[in-house]
Design a protein around this nucleic acid. Sequence first.
RNA 1: UGACCUAUGGUGUAAUGGCAGCACAGCAGAUUUUGGUUCUGUUAGUCUAGGUUCGAGUCCUGGUAGGUCAACCA
Length: 563
Amino acid sequence: MTSRNKNLDVLGNPRNFLEEIIEDDIKSGKHDGRVLTRFPPEPNGYLHIGHAKSICLNFGLALKYGGKTNLRFDDTNPTKEDVEYVDSIKEDVRWLGFEWDQELYASDYFEQLYLWADKLIEMDLAYVDDQTHEEIRLNRGTVTQPGKESPFRNRSLNENLDLFRRMRTGEFPDGSRVLRAKIDMGHPNMLMRDPILYRIIHAHHHRTGDNWCIYPMYDYAHGQSDSIEQITHSICTLEFDVHRPLYDWFIEKLEIFPSHQYEFARLNMTYTVMSKRKLLQLVQEKMVMGWDDPRMPTICGLRRRGYTPEAIRFFADKVGVAKRDNVIDLSLLEFCLREDLNKRAERRMAVLKPLKVIITNYPEGQSELLEAINNPEDELAGKRNIPFSRELFIEQDDFMENPPKKFFRLAPGQEVRLRYAYFIKCNEVVKDHQGNVIELHCTYDPASKGGTSPDGRKVQGTIHWVSAQHAAKAEIRLFDRLFSNEDPDDVPEGADWKDFVNPNSLIVTQGYLEPSLAQAKPLDKFQFERLGYFSVDYDSTPQRLVFNRTATLKDTWAKIAGQ
RNA sequence: UGACCUAUGGUGUAAUGGCAGCACAGCAGAUUUUGGUUCUGUUAGUCUAGGUUCGAGUCCUGGUAGGUCAACCA
């Protein structure tokens, strides 16, 4: 049966539009079939899941077509940038599993960019403008009205050259003059109305120090940087689409390597803010623990939460690439995570809300080790032994005094299996003065050791447990979504996006774990049966274990109980 | 109301003039020592009006809706 989808790559997967472009370019011999992409972050914040999509795209495309990818820092604005961000970006890209060809900085090109600006002046394609910030803004016009030409637009070549040189040598204060391209103040595309090329900023740059006091604007630096590196496919997000004519204009006038820009739709996700500005605000106003707060959509936050690079790469692949605006359902990210974790996370038993169970017919002071499978999805994960004794903890949710019909867990008179241990039956419910259940007295069936009864008797439910006397204790952090509304960027009139920060997004509790967990190492991942996937936090030590809940399990019981 | 971009189930993404498919989510069932996993089945879609064509999700025209652009940010 032949596939109806004829647009397939060599592996039989459908191609996205960028893959089509690249394959066509290779076929037509453009750039001698060479593929060189770049990932160009500005070091002014931490990378987030949206950047992960771009990283996977740029590196993935190069990998697929035998090309390479440069990591280039777009560091043209010293007032916003910092080495802290450079370091974190490099760490995150590596962690995601990608290796860049060259590590470069737009600031490496400042001298070349300056020379090209000189050249544009000589070609009568650039001029120094003395208008104030406000005048420039006003004279740019609006989207429906053309702009007005600057009175300084027709300065002499020599005056422009002289002024631009003196801008560089630091003769003028910040904001006093700019260098602009001479294009068309009436252009329907606002970006073509004599865009600013250079502005004066007397600030210390994290790499060039105090060598410069004029800095190129994004539009002037980006395309030329691509060109210098001979980038074949410069892939960016949709909002740069209107910049492309300007990108091409510089390349054409300067007669330099013809890099080409392609745009794709950036990633949006439900219950998530992706704006660096807002994420920075969350950090600065201490609404989260930091950039790596496990609730943050940053790469380091996801890592700390317990996400794996594989899951994120899988996600980037699943969301696809297109040009239409999109909002990805958070459940897709969660699916991708569980898909990976289910295969790799060893199972353990842990109790978060303990309820004491006393096995009245189990000898006092006795204990034994019971064998448990580490991961039913992976035979190689082996087995372990868990201590069992007379006093246990089970989950409070696993007991109901007056159970509804489809409740398969422990209830008075009802028999359940303690996973990998024994069948037990509840005989007595002990309550405190308020009537809260505080203890259960049960009997076990010694013949059901391991969890099966020789008489073939079946039980409906299997619950997890831990021996009270042997249990390790740990701080457990449960996370809910950071925002309580689906689209935190779309707030109602009079409201602020911060109103939707979920006050219950972090719950800290104590857990009782099976003893083997006391030796867990930072970032180790486990599935606590029925409770979800958990990852050991960074600052964990054997003395102070902290587990972050990485993901919940699909819970069909919640639906049954809700009815 | 200028230029540009976009429009396929609830969500995302394919179909390159020829049977509208896949994934997530949902629903139903089977298996299960995790109400997990796995497996099976299933609900649901081409923004609109014209045109071209034997044939249009696809090409053309108009409309509608959404997005981007008026930082000396990137």
